[in-house]
Amino acid sequence: MDVLMKLDRVTKTYHMGEVTVNALRETSLDVFQGEILVILGPSGSGKSTLLNIMGGMDLPTTGEMFFLGENLSRAGDKRLTGYRRNEIGFVFQFYNLIPDLTGRENVDLAADLVDEPLKVQEVLAEVGLAERMEHFPSQMSGGEQQRVSIARAAVKNPRLLLCDEPTGALDYQTGKLILALLVKINRERGSTVVIVTHNTPIGDMAHRVVRMRDGTIVEIRENAAPLPPERIEW
């Protein structure tokens, strides 16, 4: 499989007042094109920091990050903005939709950013929101909001979909539907999907599972037969 992203001995150190926090210590990881990668770990293990660096929202303190061979570890704000814009789709735990835009308009907003977006209506239909797309976020359930959020990420047709605890704020059933949606996008569009979660069973749906603790990767496990989300229990 081709390498989409390569992280080479990445460290991240935060200085919070007088305290120095080593969020990541010499972490190396390859992300392959078209895979579903789940990063597991308790809070404070460094998984979100890793995701932020992968998503171009943060830069490593030392070490290198390559995306399709391009070294982005020292990239400026402009390059990183372009990278997020064209290559990355982000799904947040709390959706972060624009409250003053309807579901469809939230997706429009992302579609306007790229040269060749997918069809907004189609993507919304794919996530099952064809009926409710003219509603405002405040009029939607959490699951609906997360679907909009996924549609917003997917409409740019990004190479890499990064999801930060995508089911964290949802109930069990809704959470599973959202995961199924991510699998569908991975399968139909070929987008690479990286999911960060502390919910261990979700690892069962991944092609590979990365386990983190104290800022380092302690295990990378391949799943020979990933389970469909519907069959995951937690």
Partner: peptide, 14 residues
């Protein structure tokens, strides 16, 4: 701030 930050993540420039 939160809304604007999410736009930045989405790929909006400053």
């Amino acid at each position: 701030q939160r809304e604007l930050a999410s736009l930045r993540v989405l790929g909006f420039s400053i």
